[in-house]
């Protein structure tokens, strides 16, 4: 498989361990990629609040670049996935609007025909690589490790733009991967709720309650770690967990929040450093020890 790779701002900024671990896992799986270094930010839905069309122009430009290469886009971020899917959905069902958008791209010699697909790494691993092939690359089973899935918002809603009808299983993709690596799913009610990141700078009290509720509840239910496909959720659930837990629950941050490729990488036997697990705010030491204590397959 080969993808036009769009890591997104956060993997190249505040969560560098996501970028590094994704590349390491892709290499192990033989996934080829061309990084879209000329592409713009998706706008994250925030830019769209001010100017929806501007957002659509920026995203359609990225789709056109991938279309020209004949490659599907792979993203590492739920927010990128959601915003791109919504933009793609809007232009694919409205040719007149697409023509209007394409006018802005003409001076660059780009024209989007509407054929690009956008896939989060989480979906690509399951749908394109396949569970059997993925499992062949695992060197240890993460038996006894309890993982709470945390989807956040934009990779589960709106279901229509995200293609849930045509791709059954996307709504349980995190559980699928957790079980594939041999872990146990810690189900909890907040897994598709907001992490609080979008209002972090607007209403921090509410944002902290969300972080404390999600991480605290998952921990109470026995989770050793939380797995998320969204680096923005990660920034809030990991980076602000010490403050949120102290402020809201009066306890300590004790739930590591890991990225999807870090989960896969642990099953592939990769080291703490390779996966950037030492870069987390909430310590992952216990988790790493737990994984390293498990037997390695011959």
């Amino acid at each position: 498989m080969k993808y036009a790779f769009y890591p997104g701002c956060v993997a190249r900024g505040g969560a560098p361990e996501l970028y590094d671990s994704a590349l390491a896992v892709m290499e192990r799986l033989g996934i080829e990629h061309v990084e879209l270094t000329r592409a713009a930010c998706t706008g994250a839905g925030v830019l769209q609040e001010k100017n929806l069309k501007m957002g659509d122009v920026l995203n359609v430009r990225t789709f056109a670049m991938a279309e020209e290469m004949g490659l599907p886009i792979m993203v590492l971020c739920s927010t990128c996935q959601g915003v791109m899917s919504q933009a793609n959905h809007r232009v694919q069902r409205d040719p007149e609007y697409l023509a209007e958008i394409n006018k802005h791209l003409a001076s660059e010699g780009l024209e989007y025909k509407g054929t690009t697909t956008v896939k989060h790494m989480l979906w690509a691993l399951i749908e394109d690589i396949g569970l059997d092939k993925l499992k062949e690359t695992f060197t240890r089973e993460l038996t006894g490790m309890n993982m709470a899935p945390f989807y956040g918002c934009y990779i589960v809603r709106p279901t229509e733009a995200l293609g849930f009808l045509d791709n059954p299983g996307r709504e349980t993709s995190l559980e699928t991967l957790i079980e594939l690596v041999g872990g146990t799913v810690t189900d909890f009610p907040g897994k598709t709720a907001c992490c609080g990141f979008p209002i972090l700078f607007i209403n921090q009290a509410n944002s902290m309650k969300m972080v404390a509720n999600h991480t605290g509840t998952a921990k109470d239910l026995g989770a050793d770690a939380m797995v998320t496909p969204c680096p923005l959720c990660h920034l809030n659930l990991d980076g602000y967990q010490p403050k949120a837990r102290r402020q809201v629950r009066g306890d300590k941050a004790d739930l590591p929040v890991i990225h999807v490729p870090q989960l896969i990488g642990l099953a592939m036997g990769m080291s703490e450093k390779e996966l950037g697990l030492q870069k987390h705010i909430v310590s992952t030491k216990k988790l790493v020890k737990q994984a390293e204590a498990l037997p390695v397959k011959a």
């Binding site: 839905g45 918002c153 934009y154 809603r157 709106p158 709720a193 907001c194 609080g196 979008p198 209002i199 607007i202 209403n203 509410n206």
Partner: peptide, 10 residues
């Protein structure tokens, strides 16, 4: 401004 844009209501 307190809406998180989580899309649940939609």
């Amino acid at each position: 401004w307190d809406c998180t844009r989580c899309l649940k209501c939609v």
